[in-house]
């Protein structure tokens, strides 16, 4: 502590007018870790209040949950609905699974976006900015979970996906779906805390849960975590995505760009000088005649 204080003082003195909190990286601490949500599918009763709460909050299509019979078939999120609940018949009975953007820790969509319209905010949610987006849909190609949805009708289309109620988080509130959940199937917090909660549940009920927390490692780790009683591939999850963060797949390529941009022109110029035949000795016809 003394040492830290000493560094801080020295740094402040040395930096002169520069504020102390920007002089050393160690001092720059985010006030919060990434926000996360834990979904315990064993607790979900398929009431779909989260669907309604989400759509009401964001002004999207509000489903008629009593009469539309939407659970009959497995649905995907759409440009009209950011979250859906699906029903799966398994050996342990009906399982309901909420589906929405998983808010990866290193999102492929944000790495794919050439205008930073898809952005991983420091609070955790991955958000979309309509003032920047040019509608190239490269985020849709890149997302391993197929989450960004595009409005194909209309002259001014938007990318639609869950933003984890970013505005509500800034106000210190929980996401609308979490607040609306009547059975505590959804739990809001920071990923580290939620991982502890999830592990605790698995360890204390080893027969009830599969011993895997979906989202801990998938695609480099996601902001939404899932617990399940049955293997995840049986309730509509892709389990072949690997644990590498998706932006890593383009990393080597992008890093090698400056190397090529500097090396190749120099090499070409050298080759061009080398092949200059102006001053070539005429009598000698080359190495083949020697």
């Amino acid at each position: 502590m003394d040492r830290r204080q000493f560094f801080l003082t020295t740094a402040t003195v040395c930096a002169g007018g520069v504020p102390a909190n920007t002089t050393r990286a160690e001092e720059v601490k985010e006030p919060k870790e990434f926000s996360a949500v834990l979904v315990d599918t064993t607790r979900c009763i398929g009431c779909r209040s989260c669907e309604v709460a989400c759509s009401v909050t964001h002004g999207n299509y509000v489903p008629d949950i009593k009469n539309d019979g939407a659970l009959e078939k497995v649905r995907d999120t759409s440009e009209k609905q950011w979250t859906v609940v699906n029903r799966f018949e398994t050996e342990k009975g009906e399982v309901f699974v909420k589906k929405q953007c998983l808010h990866c820790w290193q999102p492929a969509c944000a790495a794919a976006c050439l205008v930073n319209a898809m952005l991983k905010t420091k609070e955790g949610p991955v958000t979309w900015d309509g003032d920047k987006c040019m509608g190239c849909r490269f985020c849709m190609v890149s997302c391993p979970f197929d989450m960004p949805k595009f409005e194909y009708s209309g002259w001014n289309p938007k990318i639609q996906k869950c933003n984890m109620c970013y505005d509500r988080l800034l106000e210190g509130k929980k996401p609308a779906c979490v607040e609306s959940c009547p059975t505590d199937a959804l739990m809001f917090g920071q990923k580290r805390e939620l991982m502890e909660v999830a592990r605790h549940r698995v360890y204390s009920h080893p027969d009830k849960y599969v011993h895997h927390i979906y989202g801990e490692q998938e695609a480099g780790g996601t902001g939404w975590l899932y617990l399940s009683a049955v293997p995840f591939e049986k309730i509509g999850f892709r389990t072949d995505l690997g644990t590498t963060p998706y932006p890593e797949y383009t990393r080597e390529f992008l890093i090698s760009v400056p190397l090529i941009e500097f090396g190749v022109p120099a090499f070409l110029l050298a080759l061009n000088m080398l092949t200059d035949r102006k001053d070539e000795v005429q009598e000698n016809h080359g190495w083949k005649d020697e």
């Binding site: 790495a111 794919a112 976006c113 050439l114 205008v115 930073n116 920047k132 490269f138 390529f253 992008l254």
Partner: peptide, 9 residues
């Protein structure tokens, strides 16, 4: 106004 250096595109 928004350079996405991180993007291949």
């Amino acid at each position: 106004n928004s350079f996405g250096y991180n993007s291949v595109l």
